[in-house]
Simulated assay, not measured.
Amino acid sequence: MDLKVSNGPGLGDERTTSLLLLGFLQSCPHSCFQRELEALGHELPGRLFHDEELQTDGNRYSHFPLAAETDSERQEEAVRDVARQLAEIGDRLEGSIRPGMVAGLASHFSVRSLSEEDRRQCLAAALEQLMQTCPADMDHEKTRLLLTMLLAKKIADHSPALLRDVFRTTVTFINQNLLACVRNLVRNEMD
């Protein structure tokens, strides 16, 4: 059976991307934004990670219909695995992000009057600068995805209060620009 991230009993594109970014950020245990991340995880639609939530009968909480539960759980696990793998790779690339770039992005995200589109453009500009410093032999789209999530991590680490805004902007940016990459990574992990 060929499962697609966006079709059938799948998680849906925004949910998948949110799960991927949340899993990526949760794989950064020494970050300054862990309290904010935990709160965000509880606020996201569908309670993306609910492993710790047990019902009184000992079963896991699930909002999926019973028939789709196995596929959805398998897909969630694949997304979490991809997030962990990307976080491991990100640990090696994190040093390529200059503190000045992070401070500038955090400053832009702090401006309340800045539109969501303006924030995405700031993120895109920073991403293009970073892409110029990456080795040419790395997969272009996967690297773009990884660096986008690393930028979100670094901004949230710099200014934890910006986590929600950064998270929302990053999910939207990924869905608009890198969704095919996300789908392929999850599909490959499930195969």
Rank of each mutant, 00 (worst) to 15 (best):
R84N: 13
A83R: 03
L93K: 05
R47L: 15
F49Y: 08
V79H: 08
R84Q: 10
F24P: 02
Q85F: 06
L123N: 07
A67K: 13
P45A: 15
F109K: 03
R112A: 15
E128P: 02
Q85E: 11
T133V: 07
E69G: 09
L19C: 07
I97S: 06
L48Y: 08
L54W: 04
N59V: 13
G10K: 07
E36Y: 00
L114W: 01
M101Y: 10
H63F: 14
Q26K: 10
S31H: 01
E52G: 09
L25S: 04
Q129L: 10
G95E: 12
G12L: 05
S107T: 15
V111W: 08
T16N: 05
G104D: 12
E76S: 15
A125V: 12
L19V: 03
D118S: 09
Q34T: 02
L19A: 11
G10D: 03
L40I: 01
E52H: 06
S27F: 00
L22E: 05
L114R: 06
E52C: 11
A39I: 03
V5E: 02
L123M: 10
C134M: 15
A103L: 14
L114E: 11
H63W: 15
R15V: 13
Q132R: 08
T133P: 02
G90Q: 02
A124H: 13
N59H: 11
Q132H: 10
E69M: 05
A87M: 05
P99M: 09
A67N: 13
T17K: 02
C32N: 13
F64M: 14
N59W: 07
D51Y: 09
H42C: 09
A106E: 01
A67M: 13
E53K: 08
V111P: 01
N7W: 12
G10W: 03
P99R: 07
D13P: 06
C32W: 10
T56N: 11
F24Y: 09
Q26H: 09
A136I: 06
R74P: 00
G41P: 02
E52D: 07
R47Y: 14
R35W: 00
F109Q: 04
F64S: 15
G8Q: 04
D13Y: 00
Q129Y: 03
E88V: 09
Q132L: 10
R74E: 11
A126S: 14
L123I: 08
L130R: 02
H30P: 00
F24N: 01
R92H: 12
M101R: 12
L22P: 01
G90Y: 05
E94C: 10
D13C: 02
H30M: 08
D118V: 02
A126P: 01
G46D: 05
E73W: 13
R74D: 03
F24R: 00
Q121L: 06
K4D: 12
E77A: 14
S72C: 10
S110Q: 12
S31L: 04
P45S: 14
S110I: 01
L22W: 00
S107Y: 12
T133I: 08
Q129I: 07
R80C: 07
R15W: 01
F33E: 02
S72A: 15
E38H: 04
L21D: 03
Q85R: 08
R60E: 11
D91L: 05
S31I: 00
L37I: 00
A126G: 09
E14Q: 13
S72F: 05
Q75V: 06
S27G: 05
L22T: 00
A83Y: 01
R80D: 04
R92L: 14
F33Y: 15
L66E: 14
G100T: 07
T17L: 08
I97K: 02
